[in-house]
């Protein structure tokens, strides 16, 4: 019982800590540095993600995750408009492991997604970003700060994401 109380107190402390300092944390939290590969085998340093000072969306997904693919497909339909209006760039980080890794490029290409795609087959970036489950979507402002995150996808969530993008867009 003592232990349960201890853990409960710990958990509450965390939540409290989070809510009281969330503004500060969110305005200063950066993308951690992890080395990954993109679909063509080129090396990527996640901390160096760059989009000319425009917003960046980092979306964790997997080929077997239906809501993830729904999210990326839904955004894909409006991606040209989003880019024109805000200059945003979307990076889709696949957490598929070796079993499904070979499906990533065909899924991306056959779906016609025009995103940067990074591969994270052993979950290094996923862990560094504190991701529990996919889909998990982050929004990065022009200075590299993580300003918004959302951990699921249902139809309509892309509109909230877009409102957040508009808030930080300089265009």
């Amino acid at each position: 019982m003592k232990k349960i109380v201890f853990v409960a107190v710990m958990a509450m402390t965390f939540i409290a800590l989070q809510s009281t300092t969330s503004d500060e944390i969110e305005s200063g939290k950066k993308v951690p540095s992890v080395s990954l590969k993109d679909m063509d085998g080129n090396s990527i340093n996640t901390a160096k993600v760059f989009n000319d000072g425009n917003p960046i969306v980092i979306s964790f997904w997997a080929t077997w995750c239906k809501p993830c693919r729904l999210e990326l497909s839904t955004i894909a339909e409006e991606y040209d408009d989003w880019q024109d209006e805000t200059g945003v760039k979307l990076v889709a980080v696949s957490v598929d492991d070796q079993r499904n890794l070979s499906q990533v490029k065909p899924v991306v290409n056959s779906s016609g997604w025009d995103y940067d795609v990074w591969l994270d087959p052993n979950g290094d970036f996923k862990r560094a970003m504190g991701v529990n489950n996919v889909p998990h979507t982050f929004l990065i402002d022009g200075k590299g700060n993580i300003v918004y995150a959302h951990n699921n996808y249902v139809l309509g969530d892309e509109e909230e994401l877009y409102e957040e993008i508009l808030k930080i867009s300089k265009k």
Binding site: S102, Q103, K105, P106, V107, V108, N109, S110, G112
Partner: peptide, 11 residues
Amino acid sequence: AGYSQKGLGVV
């Protein structure tokens, strides 16, 4: 072995 282009993927 894989091949993919816009709208098509084979593995």
